[in-house]
């Protein structure tokens, strides 16, 4: 069990470490747009749109590992005082909520992504790219979030002293 939890955490850590570099891609795309519009006087049709398409995957992939880091915002004024079983129980409540959140996002986003794929949906802009790959990061991140919630639950239940 502990191995499973470590593997999940390692996977999400890896994805976090990959996703964080996307911000520099966004920076370069925006600078390129500024340059081509202002200096070359011919704005690209694709750079700003590509930047917005990267933005979703960027922050979504950060979410699951953030759960491990305890970086999601929480109001801990009351729960910080809890100890023993109560503390474990409260932690589990939070993880169940995260898993439910992920499950519902997954359940409802998969059909939409499939639909986008089968329609060959494009953004209908001057650049007009297909957009299902960007949308697909929502169900992917939802699965990863559920897995991370599971991993954290394993840690809480089987290695309480490490928490």
């Amino acid at each position: 069990m502990i191995t499973l939890s470590r593997r999940i955490t390692a996977l999400n850590r890896g994805l976090f470490a990959f996703a964080k570099w996307l911000i520099y891609a966004i920076v370069l795309l925006m600078l390129w747009e500024v340059l081509s519009r202002y200096v070359l006087s011919s704005p690209t049709s694709w750079a700003p749109e590509l930047a917005t398409l990267i933005f979703g995957p960027f922050f979504l992939l950060g979410g699951p590992y953030l759960l491990h880091l305890g970086g999601h915002v929480a109001v801990d004024v009351a729960s910080a005082k809890a100890t023993g079983r109560l503390a474990v129980g409260l932690k589990l409540v939070g993880l169940v909520l995260a898993a439910v959140f992920g499950a519902i996002l997954l359940w409802f986003s998969v059909p939409l992504v499939m639909q986008s794929f089968s329609y060959g949906e494009t953004s209908y802009s001057a650049w007009n790219p297909i957009i299902w790959p960007a949308k697909a990061f929502l169900p992917l991140s939802a699965v990863l979030l559920m897995l991370q919630a599971l991993a954290e639950a394993i840690d809480v239940l089987f290695e309480p002293e490490a928490v």
Partner: peptide
């Protein structure tokens, strides 16, 4: 109530919405 449980706010808001 859920917020005071110390759960992540994103998930509390989402779960109540659901």
């Amino acid at each position: 109530v859920f917020m005071l449980s110390g759960a992540g706010l994103a998930f509390v808001l989402g779960a109540i919405a659901f």
